[in-house]
Each structure stands twice: as C-alpha cells, then as structure tokens.
C-alpha cells in the first residue's frame, strides 16, 4: 500500500492552482505538487519528467489547447501512463461529462470544492489514503462536503 508522493494538477485557473498549492502545503508538506495549464502541457510534462511519474493526476475539463477529456484519452492509451489514477477535478457537473470521463477510465469525478476548508478536507483524505482505496474513501467523504463526487 503506497501513499501518494506527488500530484500533477492540470488546470488553467491560476487562482485554483494557488489555493490548491497553499492548501496542500498545510495538509502534507512532503507531497510534491507539479502543475501545468492544459492537456498538451500535461502530456509533454509526463513525457519529459525523467521517467518520474506522479502518484495522482488532478485533471480539469475546460482548458485551452487540449481539454481534459481529450487528455484523459491520451493518458489511457499510453502504456506507460495508463496506470496513473486520474481524478477529474472540474466545475462541471454535467452528466454527459461524468459518464464520458468515467467510461474513458477516470478513477473519480470531483467537482471543485467551495472554499478552503472543504478543499482541506478533500486533500487530507486523498493524502492519507493509499491510492487503491481512494474511491471508497472519497465516496464516504461525499457526505461531509458539498462537492459532488462520483467514483
């Protein structure tokens, strides 16, 4: 059972990245955070990072150049990358988005939390849970925070 050591956040919203970064620092300093601003950058980053792959990918949907759905397809078709768990991390709660990404192979679909406290709760849960047990943990978490989680 391995706990996550590094996250890749793929999001074009700079405010969200900042809040995510600050909150994660409070939750667990040791977890390394990489971030890029769109799907293409994410694929480039994963190809170049000296073979070091992140334990988890947080993937936004609406982004320029390459959106999260497209990026997810590339990830799941790549032998080296397809085993990295992907959490969709977005403002969308459209059922078509949920269905499509879950079918493509996302581990969970999470809508961005409203406020730092909820983000803190969410990230703590993720940081302290072995990756394999994440879906079950996140599902129980659903009751305590207002963001929408599908696993």
């Amino acid at each position: 059972m391995t706990h996550p050591r590094s996250f890749l956040l793929v999001d074009d919203d700079i405010d969200d990245i900042l809040i995510f970064q600050e909150t994660l620092k409070k939750v667990d300093e040791k977890i390394q955070l990489f971030y890029v601003h769109d799907g293409k950058d994410a694929l480039d980053f994963l190809a170049e990072n000296n073979g070091h792959l992140p334990s988890l990918i947080f993937l936004d949907i609406n982004m320029p150049r390459m959106d999260g759905k497209e990026c997810l397809k590339h990830l799941k078709h790549d032998e080296k990358l397809k085993n990295i768990p992907v959490l969709m991390y977005t403002t969308s709660s459209q059922s078509t988005d949920i269905e499509e990404t879950m079918m493509t192979g996302a581990m969970c679909f999470i809508t961005k939390p409203w406020g730092v406290n909820e983000l803190n709760t969410l990230l703590s849960a993720i940081a302290h849970t072995p990756v394999q047990k994440l879906p079950a943990t996140l599902q129980t978490l659903q009751k305590n925070i207002s963001c929408f989680i599908v696993c």
Binding site: D15, I19, T91, S92, Q94, K112, W114, G115, V116
Partner: peptide
C-alpha cells in the same frame, strides 16, 4: 438554463472561496 447557471457557479465559487480566505 443549464449552461447559464453552470457558468454563474464558477465566479461565485471564487467569490465564496476568497471571502472565506
């Protein structure tokens, strides 16, 4: 209506998050 309300959510989420900060 769906898109409008969905798009309205985004700025509001920011407002609430930053007010709380």
């Amino acid at each position: 209506a769906y898109l409008a309300s969905h798009d309205l959510q985004e700025p509001l989420r920011k407002i609430i998050t930053f007010i709380k900060i």
